[in-house]
Every structure is written in structure tokens, then in C-alpha cells.
């Protein structure tokens, strides 16, 4: 009986003070040319507003991260969905993962072709199958069964992606080795009115990758993780080293076992990764109480978050944060 009272008190507490819903997204870590900052700002700021509107109207964190990622998947500024980078053969092969921090259910896909919203397919894996992770063959069959719209071959390929591949090939020929890409993976984490967390990540991978290459994005604990008891995170950067560091799980374990803030854990883990593997990346996330964490060891990582109705916070460079006032920016274009 006392237990029930406690539950109802807690519920009441969360409804009366739980208005502080939060969503945070990233638009990829890497070396981003200043000419592309505006496009990244616009896309991430839009994505978090879409997610925030869902959270504010009592939507779930899962719906919020999916919708926010979807908006970046159709934005060619990002390496996900339309605008994905190309394999060495000029094809788009996308990976995505979504995880529900309440139920700990997870859905992941790899090698997905010719659909717009890989993240939605990942969610279908979570909801409609007994599995966590499906390969190209399994995922495409599920997409068909679930009535996804299939695009004509090449629809997702942009001019910019083609150019990147040409550059990559040129560098390969001159044996300059691996070219560090601009990244551009997208991902979000959200905290809803019931205190539930979710995380989602979607990517086209790496320019010039071998067909069949699987990066960190769809790996639970590598690129994506959510657990109501700890936090929710999404990673971006050089997939091979993020995978080796099991980056987002490492961050949650630092938070849990070392009892440091998620923010500190995120930055430390990114720095340790770069020190050890000489390659960089970044993460965004929320701890179990909805506090924001942003960490990256790459020169840039675009990010944005919203935890109040009036403003969106955003940035791309180390230690520089901007405020986007929604009312003000309605009357004038703030990103020009």
C-alpha cells in the first residue's frame, strides 16, 4: 500500500514538474568547412524544434527522436537518407539504429538502399520483429512487407556526394591514404514528460567505403544507446574507432561506475578515444534526469538542443554556443 502511494506521489511529481522535456540532436562530427555551418545550423535547429513540439504535446521520446532524425534524413546537408555518402561503387548503403530507454528495445539496420527514412525502418525492426539488428537482405524484405516506398535507383545520390567520391578516388590514386570525411551522421536523444529516454542515429557511412561495410551507427553501445536508468546517447565520427571504443556504452559506464556527470563522461571518453586511436568523433546525449551532454574531439560537431519553448541552443565549434530565439527568428531569417 505504501508502495502504491509512493508510485502515485512520484507520478504526480513527474506530471507537475516534468514539463522540462528535452531533445538534443547532432548533425555529424568531423572537419566542417565554415561555408557549410549555416546549413548544419538550419537543419539541426529545425530537427530539434520538430522533436520538441512532439514532446511538448505529451508525445513520447521515441516519436520525438524518430521525427527529428527524419527531418535531417531528407536534408541533403547531412550524411543520412537523401545526401548520404557513396560506396566505392557509387551506391548509397545506409545504417540506422533506434533504442527505447524505457523498454530497452532496440532496432537496427545496415546496408539499406532506396528508401528515404532508414530510421523508421530501424523502428520497424524494433516493433515488428523478434530481433534487434537486420542485414541488407532482411531489412529490405521487412521494408517491402511494411509497405515502404521504394525510390528509383540513384534517387538518394546528390551532386555533393558524387563530388566527394571523386575526390576520394583521386586521393586514393595519389595514395594519400584515407581521407577524413566531413562526417554528417545524424542522431538525437530525447527525454519526455514521463521521464522516458530514447536515442536514434542514422547515417550513410563513409565516402568510398567497401560495399557491405558496417559502421558504428547500428551497433548497440557503439553509436547508439538508451537506458532510462542511465541516459541516452548518439555518436558520430570515424565509425571504426567509435566501434572499437564502444563509445556510447563507455560513456554510460563512466557515468554509472565513476559517478561523474554525463557531460564530463562524454568529453573524457571522446578525448581518450582520440588519444588511443588517433581518430576523432563526438556524441550528444541526455542523462537520466534529462541533463544535456555534448562532447567531441573532432574540430567540429554540429549540435542543437531545446529544453524550453522560447529558445533553441546550437553550435558547431568547441566552447561556442548560440541561442536561436524562435519568436524573433519567425519575423526574420536568422540563418542567412
Amino acid at each position: 500500500m505504501r508502495f502504491l502511494t509512493l508510485i502515485s506521489l512520484l507520478t504526480l511529481f513527474s506530471y507537475s514538474f516534468g514539463g522540462n522535456v528535452t531533445i538534443i540532436c547532432h548533425g555529424g562530427a568531423g572537419s566542417v568547412a565554415p561555408s557549410r555551418f549555416i546549413g548544419k545550423y538550419r537543419g539541426t535547429v529545425l530537427a530539434v524544434q520538430i522533436g520538441y513540439n512532439i514532446l511538448k504535446t505529451n508525445g513520447t521520446s521515441l516519436d520525438a527522436v524518430e521525427a527529428a532524425v527524419r527531418s535531417m534524413e531528407v536534408d541533403e546537408e547531412f550524411n543520412a537518407g537523401y545526401g548520404s555518402v557513396l560506396t566505392s561503387e557509387g551506391k548509397v548503403e545506409m545504417d540506422a539504429c533506434i533504442m527505447d530507454g524505457e523498454t530497452m528495445k532496440v532496432g537496427a539496420v545496415t546496408g539499406v538502399q532506396n528508401i528515404f527514412h532508414t530510421i523508421t525502418l530501424a523502428r520497424k525492426v524494433m516493433e515488428k520483429t523478434r530481433y534487434n539488428f537486420l542485414s541488407p537482405e532482411g531489412a529490405m524484405k521487412l521494408a517491402k512487407d511494411e509497405g515502404f516506398q521504394f525510390l528509383p535507383e540513384g534517387t538518394l545520390v546528390t551532386e555533393r556526394a558524387k563530388l566527394s567520391l571523386e575526390n576520394w578516388k583521386r586521393n586514393q590514386n595519389q595514395s594519400l591514404g584515407e581521407q577524413v570525411g566531413e562526417g554528417g551522421t545524424v542522431g538525437c536523444a530525447a527525454y519526455d514528460i514521463n521521464g522516458n529516454l530514447a536515442a536514434a542515429t542514422s547515417t550513410g557511412g563513409l565516402t568510398g567505403k567497401m560495399s557491405g561495410r558496417i559502421g558504428d551507427t547500428p551497433i548497440v553501445g557503439g553509436g547508439t544507446y538508451a537506458d532510462n536508468k542511465l541516459g541516452a546517447l548518439s555518436a558520430t565520427g570515424t565509425g571504426e574507432v567509435i566501434m572499437k571504443s564502444v563509445l556510447v556504452y563507455d560513456i554510460l559506464k563512466r557515468y554509472e561506475y565513476k559517478q561523474i556527470s554525463l557531460q564530463q563522461a562524454a568529453q573524457e571518453a571522446c578525448d581518450d578515444m582520440t588519444e588511443r586511436y588517433d581518430d576523432d568523433g563526438g556524441v550528444i546525449g541526455l542523462d537520466k534526469d534529462g541533463n544535456v551532454a555534448i562532447g567531441f574531439s573532432s574540430p567540429q560537431m554540429s549540435w542543437a538542443y531545446q529544453n524550453e519553448p522560447e529558445n533553441v541552443h546550437y553550435g558547431i565549434e568547441h566552447e561556442i554556443s548560440h541561442i536561436y530565439n524562435i519568436a524573433e527568428c519567425k519575423s526574420k531569417n536568422c540563418f542567412q
Partner: peptide, 15 residues
């Protein structure tokens, strides 16, 4: 032999 960590399905079998 590859710059990657992880290959799957048709890509892995081709390799």
C-alpha cells in the same frame, strides 16, 4: 586486409 572493422552479407561474401 581492409580499412574497415566489419563486413556483412553480400559485401562480406564478395570479399
Amino acid at each position: 586486409k581492409t580499412p574497415h572493422n566489419f563486413l556483412g552479407f553480400h559485401g562480406a561474401n564478395r570479399f
